[in-house]
Design a protein around this nucleic acid. Sequence first.
RNA 1: CGGGGCGUAGCGCAGCUUGGUUAGCGCGCCUGCUUUGGGAGCAGGAGGUCGGCGGUUCGAAUCCGCCCGCCCCGACCA
Length: 478
Amino acid sequence: MARNALPKQSEDFPSWYVEVVKRAGMAEHGLAKGTMVIKPHGYALWEAIQKALDDRFKATGHENVYFPLLFPEKLLSKEAEHVEGFAPQVAVVTHGGGEKLEEPLVIRPTSEAVIWSTYANWVQSYRDLPLLYNQWCNVLRWELRTRLFLRTSEFLWQEGHTAHASSPEAMEETLRMLEIYREVCEDVLAMPVNPGRKSPSERFPGAIETYTIEALMRDRRALQSATSHFLGQNFARAYDVEFLNRDGVLEYAWATSWGMSTRIIGGLIMVHGDDSGLRLPPKVAPVQVVIVPIYRSDDEAGAVLPVARTLSDTLAGDGIRSRVDDRDQHRPGFKFSEWELKGVPVRIEIGPRDVEAGQVVVVSRTSGTKRTLPAGEASSTMTSMLRNIQQELYDDALSFRDANTHDAHDYDELRAGLQAEGGFWVGAWCGDTACEQRVSQDTKATVRFLPLEPEDPGAACVVCGRPGVDKAAWARAY
RNA sequence: CGGGGCGUAGCGCAGCUUGGUUAGCGCGCCUGCUUUGGGAGCAGGAGGUCGGCGGUUCGAAUCCGCCCGCCCCGACCA
C-alpha cells in the first residue's frame, strides 16, 4: 500500500517539510554549510514567480539592472543602523589572487550600500528622478540555523531600489510594491496574506517604515513573505545623493527598497501541502496536467501512447503545460503517487479500456476524486478545472487563515492562545518595546504586523493595560 | 560560542562494548524474465581509501590522541 509514506503534517510538521522538499525534487543541501542546490522542479517554480513579479514591475515603470556581488566593506558602515543590523551576517572577502587584499570586500547581504553609492553619481536634478530600478540576484547572509528555502545563507531574490524627489512619492511607491506582492501571493500563488507595518524592532535596518505581507502556514506559524521599505532620506544622506529641486534648493533624495525571495517557495509548500505532498497552484505549476498511460502489452502500449501524446499536444495548443509520463520502469501506481508528491494539479489516466470507450479518467489534486470524461472533452475541460483548483487552494488557505486568526482581549488570553493554539492573535498595543519583548519571552511569538487600518487601536494594551496606539498581530514565526 | 549527537556503498543503517577470515543489511542502481487501472515479484550483478592524520598492536571500522565536517537544541535573522 502506502510504501514510503511521508511523515504526517499533524504528527511532525518539520520532518514533513524536509521530506517533501527532498522527495519532490525541489532542493537539497549544497556542499558548504547553509547553501542550497535548487533542483529543476524547484527552479521552475521560481521562474514562474519571477515572471509574475517581473511583469508587474515592468508594468509599473520599473527597469532591471545589475549591481556587483562585491563591494568595499567601508561602504556598508556609512549608514549607522544599516551596518549595525547586518554586521553579524556579512561575509568578508579578505584574500584574492593569493594575496591579502588591502581593502576587504563584502559579499552583498543586500544592495542598498552599493546602489546608493552609485546613485550619487546618477542624480543631480529633480529631472533625474525617479529612478525605478530592480535587480534579480543572489545575496549572502551568514546564518546560524538554516532550512531549505526558508533560511539559507545564500538565497535568490529581487531587490527594488527607487529614488524619488519627494516623501509622498516614495511612500506611494512603497505601498504600490507592497500591493504587487499581495496580488502575486493571493492571485498567483493562492496564498492569502496580511499586509501591515512592522514594529520598530522588526524594521529593516535603516528604514523609516517597513511594510510586510504575512502568511499563515498550516502549522499555524507565520511567514514574512515579502517586505517593502520606506527609507526616507537616510540612505541619500549616508551616501550623499543630493539633487536640485524645482526651487533650486539642494535636497536629499527619498528612497524605497522592496524584495521577495526564494523563501516564498517554502511558504508555498507550507500553505498548500498535504499529507500526500505538494499541491501547486495551477498558475505556477511547472506541469499543470500529467498524463499517465496504462498498458500491459506492447500492443496496448501501441494503442494508448499515441492517444496520450495527441492529447498532450492538444493541451499545449490551449496553452496548458502538460506532460506524458511514458517512463517504462515504473508502474502506474508509482507514477500516481509521485506526481501527487510533486503537486501536479491534474492527472489524466488513459488505459486500453479508455481508448476503447473513447474516454479518459481525470483526477484533481485537490479533491482526489476520479472522473470519467469523453476524450473529446478532456482538453476543453482542463482550463476550467485548473481555474477551479487555483480557487480551491486559495479558499482552503483563506478559511484556514481566518479560522486561526483571533482577537486577544487580555494578556492571559494572548499568552495562552499563542502557546496552545498558535495562529495570529490580534490585540491593542501601547507601542512600548518592553511589552513586545515580554510577549516574546513568554511565548516565543513576535509582532508580525501592525494592521494598516486598525480597528479600535485605542483599547487597552493587551500586555500592560495602558491605552493602545496600535493594533498588533502576534504569532510564532519562521 | 554553550549543551547533545553523528561520520561505514548513491540514500538509510548494523558491526565497535570484548581488535582476528573475502565488512554486512534494507532501499536505490544494472541485466533478464514475469508484471502494469494506487508506491510490483523473482533470479543474477555492479558498487567501499569504514571522515582525515598519527599512535598502540603480529593484526585496527573496532583501542588511544589530534584534526575536519555535519545534524539537533539555545542566543541572531528574509
